[in-house]
Nucleic acid binder design. Structure first.
Lengths: 200, 200, 200, 200
DNA sequence: CATGAATGAGAATTCATTCAT
DNA sequence: TATGAATGAATTCTCATTCAT
């Protein structure tokens, strides 16, 4: 995730971010103190504030970095699919892979988006593209159940999250493509219109 | 006739719990301080600790009370249904009604179960009965999708929560029995085995 | 100054204010830390913040109290004088007496009004009455030199301050009424119009 | 020809001093941080400490430099006057001119001498010459009011400061020689013995 | 039972200063 | 000489908890 550029200089910043990522996902935002982060990172307390003026800055920076990394995942292979359902399913796979390969980052994004630590309006909508490219076109094709796109998004994200947590706790099952496929289809089944002719 | 002193005693304890419930659900566990609770309850700071040795005790007590109240709701009318699906759907209705009538209590239970304020292992499993009475029998009848009962439970609870929040924000829709029925069926659709003959 | 009411309750608050008054006048606002004040007052660090939410609150409270005390001094005997000059001179004596009897309080007021620690606009004009009752009427009678009333006030206050500091460092001279009278007349000489017939 | 390296060296030192002078007079000693000074000077944080081992060193150096500059002003034209009053008045004009032409330097000297940032005993008496050459001889001639020379000095400096601030805020008035003359005479009137025959 | 003053262990943050390069 | 990353002691302030009354 965080670039490991020219040694020394970025090193401490990286260490701080790594420590923060680890502790935040383990204990929560408020439960993690800046001195814990500094200690875990092996730097002095003041060093942390040399790089990040406030605790919130660490959180925002982490969110930005994790989002960028996630983005590089969730676009993958979308062009291979013409159908909405194909794109939808691919996106679920992409998120799952991201979560499997960058578990802390995935958990951090989830924490950030659901936390009450930060005011709602500061949260960037990472999923706007998902709505624009998949849900709204899908609705025009009557592929999804009736209801506001936000609700479809909510249901999708939450079900996906549950399944992701399931796979994180049972990593061996994540190696079985068939099992994964079946699990992820539940999501489509939940939000798609059963009467639609979704001729894949 | 209830003796005055005892009434008084219960009064303050109750006031504290009510204040805590209100503030916790509004601002979160860490964001609510014990002195805020005392002020809201109209009692002295020390009085709060007379009844509850620690802040966590208030939270635990509230969870217990809310759980008991919830329990009295979610058993309602279950005996009217023989089929697993009937019981399952009734249970969803019960939770929804509980949330509509005791919104703060419902939100508190949800907060408690998802919060990182308390270590995971302290959280009591409120839904064990749900698993024993509905999911496990249902699985034996192949009514549910394959997967561990905990996963079915998780999916059910999360979808239900999303819908409940939707209804809390759109209370007038909650008065339309047909709309409610349709919304809650999505949950059954998500977790039930489509190939099962669920002849109610 | 600070009321010593019913023992215990006010005690700590009083101790804190006394300690703050002493340290602020000795070392300045920024140079005095809240823990120094707490230590000097013999109370715990948190106790200080139990009574005063912020450091600035201590300063504001002290200023208010000192101002009230000063007020009770600088009105004394003014009614005995009909002439502007008589009132003017009496006021100088009153301030001097206040400074001699409540040195720290006088120094605190002076610090507060000249400090850059607090934003200008928060400073209450303690001398508005002086301008209204003495300088402006005096100007209408052409008793003072030409110039904005604020400048007359400034010169008066500054000269007075210099003399007060002189007397604080040479207290025995303050016991010589003649010497005091002569010293304070310098101020009148500086700001009064030499051509005016100030027939006392 | 000035060697490049040396020029560079002086350059940075000068930049730091200029930046410090600007910021100190604008915000105060404690309110100005060393990194603000470095930033304003356009040098690295460490560079500042290469030239000045401590923050206080910057302040002391500035005071020395400003004092030297002031000195070059306040001696000007003194030799044209034989009388004490003539010299006294010339000195006031010199200070005023210094303040008008080097406002920040004047304000810095004033700040330095009145600040509680530095312990009293570190403050050097800049005005010893004033006392030796003007006040003490003047007192022997009974030109000044009775009182210790330090008091005469204090009164003079403070009144002068008030007037200087007045002129800094009303620079157009400083261009009117007659107005200036009248304003500065107030000072002489305040400290001089009215019974003395000050036949210039 | 009830009070609320008192506590003190941290919390986030600041900043003059150091030091390796 | 010049840099700027790194430091850590100190600062203001928070808050769950205690305790004498």
């Amino acid at each position: 995730m965080i670039p490991k550029t020219q040694a020394g200089m970025e090193n401490k910043k990286t260490k701080i971010l790594k420590a923060a990522l680890k502790l935040f996902t383990k204990y929560g935002f408020r439960e993690t103190t800046t001195s814990q982060i500094a200690r875990e990172a092996g730097v002095a307390n003041g060093t942390l504030f040399h790089y990040f003026p406030t605790k919130d800055d660490i959180i925002e920076t982490l969110f930005l970095l994790c989002s960028l990394n996630a983005e590089s995942y969730y676009r993958r292979g979308l062009e291979n699919y013409k159908s909405i359902k194909g794109k939808f399913m691919q996106l679920l796979h992409n998120w799952l892979n991201f979560a499997l390969e960058h578990t802390e980052q995935y958990l951090f994004i989830n924490m950030y988006l659901t936390s009450s630590y930060l005011p709602q309006d500061e949260k960037i909508l990472v999923f706007s593209e998902f709505i624009e490219k998949i849900i709204e076109p899908g609705e025009r094709q009557k592929l999804f159940k009736d209801g506001p796109p936000e609700l479809i998004l909510e249901v999708t994200c939450n079900l996906l999250h549950i399944l992701i947590v399931h796979f994180l706790n049972n990593r061996q099952k994540a190696s079985d493509p068939e099992y994964v496929e079946r699990a992820l289809s539940f999501i489509w089944d939940s939000v798609s219109n059963p009467h639609a002719l979704s001729h894949k």
